[in-house]
């Protein structure tokens, strides 16, 4: 226990970094997910192809490989970002592919009649999406989106591999000093669990609040 309490400051910083990384990445991944899902249902074949290619590439590569590639390969062609930024970009791009598929599933639950009615009153494709299709499609997949957000939270620990000092990296560092892996990683694990529980609660709340009257 003392192994944890005597390093609260380092672990605390790690926890804050994990939360920051999760929040920033979730927002980015949601935006990307909506854009890519929209591409996948666009009336233009080229846009659909781009959306499909995005999903196939980023869903089918390991996140760790993407992180290492981005952080160590890009500098060789002269592109460098701060480590936190790099990790956030890569995780957002990766999780965006998963979110895009969940959102597309949600869009598919919205009856074709809704889109027809939206077009019939003169809404453009973009307006139909924004005011009719997405509000209903997203409501249908709040739960799977929440699950992906929890997976995203867990995946932020991979940022440790490219030098971001988030919670897992902080715990690792503390363990190197204290050599008490059970206490240190149980503590870190409980912190992750707490964060995941919060995401789950928010998901449930949103689902109840936004439920469509049927």
């Amino acid at each position: 226990m003392e192994a944890l309490t005597s390093h609260l400051s380092e672990l605390g910083h790690g926890l804050v970094t994990t939360v920051e990384l999760t929040v920033v990445t979730t927002v980015g991944a949601m935006l990307l997910g909506i854009v890519v899902a929209t591409l996948r249902i666009a009336p233009v074949p080229l846009l659909r192809a781009i959306g499909t290619a995005y999903v196939e590439v980023f869903q089918n590569l390991p996140l760790l490989a993407l992180l290492v590639l981005f952080v160590f390969a890009l500098p060789t062609i002269g592109i460098t970002f701060p480590l936190f930024t790099s990790a956030a970009i890569v995780i957002a791009v990766y999780e965006g592919a998963y979110l895009a598929e969940a959102i597309r599933a949600g869009i598919n639950t919205v009856g074709v009649g809704q889109a027809e009615a939206a077009r019939a009153i003169g809404l453009t494709f973009g307006q139909s999406l924004r005011h009719v299709i997405l509000p209903q499609g997203l409501r249908a997949v709040i739960q799977p989106i929440g699950n992906i957000c929890i997976a995203l939270l867990m995946n932020t620990s991979l940022a440790a591999a490219v030098g971001v000092v988030e919670l897992t990296q902080a715990a690792n560092t503390v363990n190197l000093v204290e050599a008490q892996p059970i206490a240190v990683f149980t503590g870190a694990g409980l912190a992750y669990m707490l964060l995941a529980l919060i995401i789950g609660q928010v998901t449930g709340l949103l689902e109840r609040r936004l439920a469509i009257v049927r």
């Binding site: 009649g113 809704q114 009615a117 509000p135 469509i212 049927r214």
Partner: peptide, 13 residues
Amino acid sequence: VGMVFQSFNLFGH
């Protein structure tokens, strides 16, 4: 051009 559908198609949300 207004359109009224067989299945109403009111926006559910």
